[in-house]
Design a protein around this nucleic acid. Structure first.
Lengths: 613, 613
DNA sequence: CTATTTACCACCTAAGTGCCAACC
DNA sequence: GCGGTTGGCACTTAGGTGGTAAAT
């Protein structure tokens, strides 16, 4: 049509879309990091052109003219210039949680390659409860889930020794950052562009370097900040979904995982046995090629997903993600899977004030903020749904020069950090501050990164020679760590043996965590001294409502590891840590550690698990 | 490898890429609008969550503590908070200019579809001379090149009547906006994601609505602003490359264009006659299918692409885009194709100060800035290379409520605006300010957009009912315009006849412009009273160095159309217009209009044209 | 040797292209 | 039927999948 009658057009034309409305494309937003990175590899942080030193003057900005003098007493805060004072109460939901749980039950494996591989269930989140007008930066990182090295033996994952040294983990900034709360809430936030690699000389920068045969835990960070430079000074919330835990592999070990991937990943349709007829055919073909039907797994769990499971002979009859298109087959959203840190209405986003659950008695973070705030979870804090949430106050500039090696990130129970965990990094948090690093770590890393850039004439992170970091944290430290762990033969030493003072009796099923109520295959064969009798090593778990609530007490002696891993708060509860506020009570530490390990599960959390169609 | 010797790793690991370095992907940056839009359709302007009213307080920010009191005397400026005072001297180069020129010679056609179609030679620019630390917003819009409707008859484009009413044009914000100068300069800035459509009910928001069989002119806007909200207050520069002019079609008319697209667009390789052998084969096949070899065009050129050019019998022998892969076939960069607005070193980016060419006498914009600045190009200003550049100061808030209907955008000579151009919009610039709109228009549109959002509770532009705009510009105006032009039979009325006071004798080959020195097929059959005798209607132009420098004097009576189209300055020269500063001398107006029409061409501009291999 | 990892493959999705028959 | 428009088609690029054999 060339030109319709004005009458009908007027309405259309009347609206001047000078600016593209930015209508979201169909489907989840392509919020993937890579998109932005590839599109605008420079935008935020680390870009050469980015002002190396904030021009904002001292952080935080001076109090407003009419501000009460007492305000000055509060610790430096991260309130961004445009902070409208509106309190947010973010809730985060893991997209495709059901699928994630299916994988988790089997023991999720993620392929890592030299060139980088995307994660298959993709990391996608729904966010709500944000201040529509405030700007937020969303991040994702992947940290070691424990200090073990694994091997897939007899159809199950077993500990095969101490972990290899972790490569420094990078914080993946969602490419759309910073965007307003309204923008983030409008669509699913996807981090699918993030790539996993085992290539230490990652040139792309899109990739996260992982060790094969090690267990990892993705973490989602929500930071209220309108500028990436302010990240280190801003309040951030960390959400951990245990169901996204996975073991990095260069080749799939568990055939069930392979099949689940094939059945759910559109790009793997070529390997799919569509429909009954095709299915048989294809599998036959595969079998022929293989020469044997049961690669590794001897235990088939009916468990897996979609009912049909006319799978190959080898093991499973488990999955039947019948149709190509469906990714989330079973009923979703049966259980409350969105969690909110629930900041107090008068919450102060700066580093100083405490954050409490609106209606709660848990003053988790109070001590943390000004005094040296840290987690102070109560017992109540332990019962919470899937995502473990933690809040962290911004780090103070004074600590910036220090860098906490990301490889110390692991916070799982059981083994102590590789070798005597260098206490140096902890100095950041001052003596007695043992777990504050959990939530604050990400920012600290970010900050340090920035710092490096500033110190070393701000080239691209990758472009900049490694020297920068080394110097910032002390070259000796880093190299020592590396040396200490080079070439681990990864014997099958039981984890318990290696542990130091840390492993408590509670930590038996140490790394076990439940993906929001689902049983994970990971819980199976932890070679620790106390293997959980509850579960058979096999993920043969039928759709059940059984609750796996193991309590793990993480090593107090290595709080930094712990906290860095998963310091969590009960959803709807907030914890606040600040570098200087890190000194906490030992008792608190324990609670925190519990949360960190994400072992407490509420019965209602399991509810939706058995929905497999 | 699991873990290499620390010695080798240390350097690698020492560098903590916490933040992805955002290494640019190979090839030109995927800076396309759509990318960001699709990725983060909300980011900048118009997003619901976007702060409707800047919280910055009064623009500009209060002077620094140590600032001289006299600073306060300066008019409100748009200097962004992070404006470091560094003067930039932006230069913009059209990527693939040679290819563009080839198309332009034939009379570029761009397919528009209901679902939206990307442009094929893609809009890509190289930018340099920016302040590395300052943030810039890059935009692209496509405006009517004239007021005609065309038809392709006898192998040439002919005017077929007055233009249909234009749909409101939207300003396409480059998705990476805002980014630092350093970021923009680092790679080619691509707008390839922009899509053209004829679907008035464009739901996607990525698309620009055009009228089929109408001629358009893309424009590139460079704005120094660190926040999209500040766009209206910021200095902007507009670059117009005449070689990117095109006629929108729903189906290709000129077979040569088709072939040129096929030969150069990788996605059209399927239609390519690779190698000599294949070529013959394919064409034979095509012939079979067609049943006739000459769909529409009676003129075939052996010309087309891959050397073999055993094309259909039609006419031209002129061009030859030899190889598939090459986009820029002929010698590039023979002529200076990068242009800089050349701001004075002490240039003030605010709305107030004047901008002069560093070494020049052209004080083009001076009057414009504080006093009500506008173009004041001198004769010298008229001789310049391809991109026509204009500078515009920010619009002042007072004028925001007004909206200038984008469809009045055309600035070509010849016909007057459709019907009596509503003078209302011009009120924005005050009486006597007749051409200031050119450069300032884009921002004004943007601003109005923002305003609308603010006024109408800031929904998405598209989401928001058309009411907003209608009300802002006055419903009556818009609807009247629409009514006035509905269903034009587009008779073959010669343009000259329709013109009002505007068309001067100089404007004979009115719309003819040279794409940076190349002859355009568009110049051929302008049914105006004075057809350029120089060129045959057919783009049969052999590789020649002939210069087409026709001077067109655009109608003074309709300055808004003119100016909005192509107000241009000599490269390296800057013009500045401001809403309030719009009152200019009549003499200046003429100069400006000349520039607007981009008719002045320097001999050296043509140089590279004949290089076709 | 074993246990992993790599490189390459066919197969898929997603999306851009012009062609063409059908439509108006 | 003409001029213009539309939607399905085959083809392309680009890139994500797991399989597989060879390399480490």
């Amino acid at each position: 049509m060339r030109f319709e009658p004005p009458v009908s057009l007027v309405p259309e034309m009347a609206f001047p879309p000078f600016l593209l409305p930015r209508a979201p494309p169909a489907g989840p937003a392509d919020f993937s990091v890579s998109s932005l990175l590839s599109q605008n590899p420079y935008l935020p942080l680390g870009a050469p052109g980015y002002p190396l030193l904030p021009k904002l003057g001292p952080y935080p900005p001076p109090p407003a003219p009419g501000a009460n003098p007492s305000d000055d007493l509060r610790p430096l805060r991260s309130i961004p210039p445009d902070d409208d004072g509106v309190v947010d109460d973010p809730k985060v939901t893991l997209e495709g949680r059901d699928l994630w749980e299916k994988f988790h039950k089997l023991g999720t494996e993620m392929v890592i390659t030299k060139s980088g591989r995307q994660m298959f269930p993709q990391m996608k989140f729904r966010v709500s409860g944000l201040d529509p007008k405030a700007k937020y930066i969303l991040l994702l990182d992947i940290v070691a889930a424990d200090d073990y090295r694994y091997k897939f033996h007899n159809s199950r994952w077993m500990v095969a020794g101490k972990a290899d040294p972790e490569m420094p983990k990078r914080m993946y900034i969602h490419p759309d950052s910073p965007s307003t709360g309204e923008q983030w809430m409008q669509k699913v936030v996807s981090f699918h562009k993030l790539k996993l690699t085992n290539n230490i000389s990652d040139k792309h920068g899109f990739q996260t370097i992982l060790n094969s045969m090690h267990k990892y835990q993705p973490r989602f960070h929500l930071v209220r900040a309108n500028d990436i430079l302010k990240l280190p000074y801003s309040t951030f919330r960390t959400y951990v979904f245990k169901e996204t835990e996975f073991i990095a592999v260069t080749a799939y070990q568990n055939e069930k995982i392979t099949q689940l991937k094939i059945d759910n990943n559109p790009f793997a349709k070529g390997f799919r046995d569509t429909g009954a007829g095709k299915r048989e055919k294809k599998q036959a073909l595969l079998a022929q090629r293989h020469g044997d039907d049961h690669p590794r797994s001897s235990n088939a769990g009916p468990s897996l997903s979609n009912s049909l499971g006319s799978g190959p002979s080898d093991s499973m009859t488990h999955d039947n993600v019948d149709d190509d298109e469906r990714v989330d087959v079973v009923g979703n959203d049966h259980r409350p899977d969105s969690v909110s840190p629930s900041l107090p209405r008068h919450h102060d986003y700066g580093g100083g004030e405490n954050q409490r659950r609106d209606d709660s008695d848990r003053d988790i973070s109070d001590s943390g903020s000004e005094s040296g705030g840290a987690f102070r979870p109560t017992a109540r804090d332990l019962d919470h749904p899937s995502p473990n949430i933690s809040l962290g106050p911004p780090l103070q500039p004074p600590m910036l020069p220090y860098l906490y090696p990301p490889n110390l990130y692991s916070g799982a129970p059981g083994l102590p950090p590789l070798g005597p965990p260098p206490s140096l990094p902890m100095s950041l948090f001052g003596p007695g501050s043992q777990h504050a690093s959990a939530a604050s770590l990400p920012p600290s890393l970010l900050f340090n990164h920035i710092l490096q850039q500033q110190l070393f004439h701000g080239g691209y992170p990758l472009a900049a020679p490694p020297v920068s970091l080394a110097s910032s944290i002390g070259p000796a430290l880093l190299s020592d760590r590396l040396k200490a762990h080079r070439f681990l033969p990864y014997p099958l030493i039981p984890p318990a043996t290696a542990s130091s003072s840390s492993t408590s009796s509670l930590s038996s099923t140490s790394t076990s965590v439940l993906g929001g109520g689902s049983l994970s295959a990971f819980e199976t064969v932890t070679p620790s001294s106390h293997t959980s009798p509850k579960h058979s090593p096999r993920p043969t778990v039928e759709p059940t409502t059984a609750v796996e609530s193991s309590n793990v007490l993480s090593p107090v002696s290595h709080p930094h590891r712990m906290s860095s891993l998963l310091s969590s708060c009960i959803p709807g509860q907030t914890t606040q840590t600040s570098p200087q506020a890190s000194q906490q009570h030992p008792s608190e530490l324990k609670s925190i550690e519990k949360m960190v390990n994400g072992l407490d599960i509420k019965p209602d959390m399991i509810k939706s698990e058995s929905v497999d169609k």
